[in-house]
């Protein structure tokens, strides 16, 4: 398959070890270290806790992975989460219908994504700037709409989506597994998915070999937006409220999860499952610091060091086996 070679050509993967293995190793090293450091860490309750927290970050980062695979960036995901959450919240409260709220949340997220995609493809604005602009527009709309207020108190049925359990496993974890499967299948087993890699690896070559580059770009931004919309619903169900600053502190960790997960900022290489490991590593860091009572002042420093170590383990082990 010619697309396969187009997307994999610049890479030097070793033949026997799947590329995600080294990143998984970094996560395992971190988890082992925490097991030695804290009695509480390896308990079932805490592990479920970590997975539930990972789910949220993964959902935002999974859509973003596709964008970064095309060598693009979506800086508006956090702001998109905030706007989608606020609109969905007011529909859930106002119209009294959680389902309508879900529709509005995912719909708003997707429309924002399509808007980003249009800026990038039709107006040819570089994605960094296009989505940076969108971020401000969304933030402005959200602040104006909310006027400093909070919308809170959602129906128990809707809240199950964020706080509920099924067979002892938190519901967001099922959502995470579902989208891991869908994302991995889409990226690696479908023609459209392979075309996304091809666009990222070399847009000109992709165009010449008949890939509809613009339409694939539109698709990835729309998916990234839709996933932000979906994540906003889980956040609503989890924290039982929406306020204008909900999306702050969500964008950078999501980008970091994608990059720690091994997706290249230059496009064309990376996996959705890698992003899951990236999200897991970032979540483990915070979980570990809370369990070990690391002083609040030291936490940013510890986060930085561990993120660098995780990426270094990945690079170093890959180099050794090459």
């Amino acid at each position: 398959m010619s697309l396969e070679t187009a997307s994999r050509a610049p890479l030097t993967f070793t033949r026997h070890v799947p590329p995600g293995a080294y990143r998984l190793l970094a996560a395992i090293v971190l988890a082992l270290a925490l097991t030695f450091a804290s009695d509480v860490f390896p308990t079932w309750g805490n592990l479920l806790n970590v997975l539930r927290q990972t789910a949220l970050l993964f959902l935002i980062a999974s859509g973003l992975t596709l964008v970064i695979l095309t060598a693009g960036l979506d800086l508006s995901v956090g702001a998109n989460v905030a706007l989608s959450a606020c609109l969905a919240a007011s529909v859930i409260k106002g119209a009294g219908s959680p389902w309508l709220g879900v529709l509005v949340g995912v719909g708003c997220g997707s429309l924002v994504g399509l808007f980003n995609g249009t800026l990038v493809t039709l107006l040819r604005i570089p994605s960094f700037i296009a989505t940076y602009g969108t971020m401000w527009i969304l933030t402005g709309i959200t602040y104006y709409y909310m006027g400093g207020e909070t919308i809170h108190g959602f129906p128990p049925g809707f809240r199950q989506f964020g706080i509920g359990y099924l067979f002892g496993i938190p519901i967001p974890v099922y959502v995470m597994i579902l989208f891991l499967a869908i994302g991995t299948f889409f990226a690696e087993r479908t023609v459209w998915g392979r075309q996304v890699y091809a666009v990222g690896a070399n847009p000109e070559a992709a165009r010449l070999s008949g890939v509809p580059v613009e339409r694939r770009l539109l698709l990835v931004y729309a998916v990234s937006g839709a996933m932000a919309g979906l994540a906003s619903l889980i956040i609503l169900a989890r924290i039982n409220s929406a306020q204008g600053d909900l999306g702050e502190d969500l964008t950078l960790p999501a980008i970091a999860a994608v990059l720690i997960g091994g997706t290249s900022l230059f496009g064309g290489s990376g996996t959705v499952s890698g992003t899951l490991i990236g999200a897991l590593i970032l979540t483990l860091v915070v979980n570990g610091m809370n369990l070990l009572q690391i002083n609040a002042s030291w936490q940013p420093l510890a986060t930085g060091v561990i993120v660098l170590l995780a990426v270094w383990i990945d690079i170093a082990t890959r180099r050794d086996t090459d």
């Binding site: 806790n49 539930r52 924290i239 915070v286 979980n287």
Partner: peptide, 14 residues
């Protein structure tokens, strides 16, 4: 709120 929720979930484990 979200960060506090998650920190509290972690502390509850401890």
């Amino acid at each position: 709120r979200l960060q506090a929720l998650q920190v509290m979930e972690n502390l509850i484990q401890s």
